[in-house]
Design a protein around this nucleic acid. Structure first.
Lengths: 194, 194
DNA sequence: ACAGAACTAGGACAAATGTCCTAATATTTG
DNA sequence: CAAATATTAGGACATTTGTCCTAGTTCTGT
C-alpha cells in the first residue's frame, strides 16, 4: 500500500467514524461512506475488504484518539481533580452532538450488543481506556481500593446523561446533570480527604 | 377486524416487542417476526401495512405496560420510598437481559435517534411516564420543586447502569451500582427530611 | 520512455429487504 | 345452506445491501 492509499484509507476511516456516530453502524452503507469520501463504491474493495474491517479501523482510531487526549491531560495538568473535571466537561463541550446522536462510544456499544457482534469486545476498550485513566486519578485522590468502582460509577453517569439528553433532545438536562456531577466530585473528594 | 385478527395482532406485537429488544428495530425483519409468530410473511400485510406501524404498536403496549406497572405499585404500596425502591429493583430483577440487551427503553430511543426516526417522540414517552411517576414519589418525600430534577437524575442513573452493564457484559457492576443507588436514595431522603 | 505496481470506475452477483397483489381458504352472518 | 366477509399463503416487485471481478488508468522507479 502506497502513500496515496494510506491517505485515502484515513479519509475513509474518518468519514466512517462520523457516519457511524450520526447514523449508526448498520444503517451506514458502503455507498454512504464512498459518497462522503468521493470515491466509487466498487473501488472501496481495494481499501477495505469487509464492513467489519472498517468498523475495526474506526474503533482503533477512536481508542487511539481517546488515549492521546487522556495522555495530553495527564501531561498538561498535575491536579487529579482538575483532570477529572476536564473529563466531565466533555459532556458540556459536546452537548449539541450528544443531543442529536448521543455518546459515540456508548451508542456504538449498544448497537453492537444488539447485533451480537463480536467486535463489542473491541469497542468497549474505548470505555476501558477511560475507566483505567479515571481510576488512576481517583487513586491519586486517595480513594485507594474504591478508585476503580468510583471510576466505573462516573463512566455510567456520563453514559446515562448522554442517553437521556439524546432521548429527550434536551441539552438543558445535560447542563443540570453536569452541575450535579461536579458537586458529587467535590463531596467525594472531601469525604476521602479525612 | 374480527377476533382472530385481534389475537394474531397481539401475538405479532408481542413477538416484535421481544425481537426489537433483542436485535434492535432495524435489524429485525418482517420475516423474523413472521417466523416467530408462525405466519407467512405475505400475510403480514393484512395485519400491519408498514414496519413503522408495528413499531408504533410496540411502543404503545410498552407505554401501557409501564403505566399499569406503576399504577399497581402506587396502589399496593403507600410509602414513596418503598415505591422508588421497587423502581430501582427493576435493574436487579432484569440483570441477565440487561447484560445481554441493555435497557429496552433506552436502547430503542438510542436507535431511533440514530435513524432520525420521527417516532423517537413517541418512544421517549416511555421514559416520560416513569419520570412523572418518580416525580410524584419524590414530591411526596418533600422534595418539592426539586422532585422533577431528581426524578430525571434517577432515570439517567438507571440508563447509565444499563448501558455499561451491557457494554461490559458485567452483571457484577449492575449489582454494585444498585447498592450505590439505594444509598443515594437514603441520603437524599435524609437530606430533605430536615 | 517503459515495465510493474498502485489505484480506480463501473458494474455483476446473490441475498435480503419492505411493500404489495392475488387467488384460495376459513369463518361468520343472513 | 349460501352469501358475504375475514384471514391466509405464496409469490411478485423494485430497491438496496455487502461482496467481488475485471478492465482500464495513474503513478513510481529505472
Amino acid at each position: 500500500m502506497g502513500q496515496k492509499a494510506q491517505a485515502i484509507r484515513q479519509r475513509i476511516v474518518a468519514a466512517a467514524d462520523q457516519l457511524f456516530y450520526q447514523r449508526g453502524y448498520e444503517h451506514t452503507s458502503f455507498s454512504d461512506i464512498a459518497d462522503a469520501v468521493g470515491i466509487s463504491r466498487g473501488n472501496f474493495y481495494y481499501h477495505f475488504k469487509t464492513k467489519d474491517e472498517i468498523l475495526n479501523a474506526v474503533i482503533d482510531i477512536r481508542v487511539d484518539q481517546i488515549q492521546r487526549m487522556l495522555d495530553a491531560w495527564t501531561y498538561e495538568y498535575s491536579d487529579p481533580q482538575q483532570r477529572i473535571l476536564l473529563f466531565i466537561d466533555i459532556l458540556t463541550n459536546n452537548q449539541e452532538s450528544i443531543k442529536s446522536h448521543g455518546c459515540p462510544i456508548g451508542s456504538l456499544c449498544t448497537e453492537l450488543a444488539k447485533l451480537s457482534h463480536e467486535m463489542l469486545q473491541e469497542a468497549n476498550v474505548m470505555l476501558a481506556v477511560m475507566r483505567d485513566w479515571l481510576t488512576d486519578q481517583f487513586r491519586a485522590l486517595g480513594m485507594g481500593a474504591d478508585a476503580r468502582k468510583i471510576a466505573m460509577h462516573l463512566l455510567a453517569r456520563t453514559q446515562g446523561i448522554a442517553t437521556i439528553t439524546n432521548a429527550f433532545e434536551d441539552q438543558q438536562f445535560l447542563r443540570q446533570e453536569v452541575k450535579r456531577l461536579r458537586q458529587w466530585l467535590d463531596e467525594m473528594i472531601a469525604q476521602y480527604a479525612n
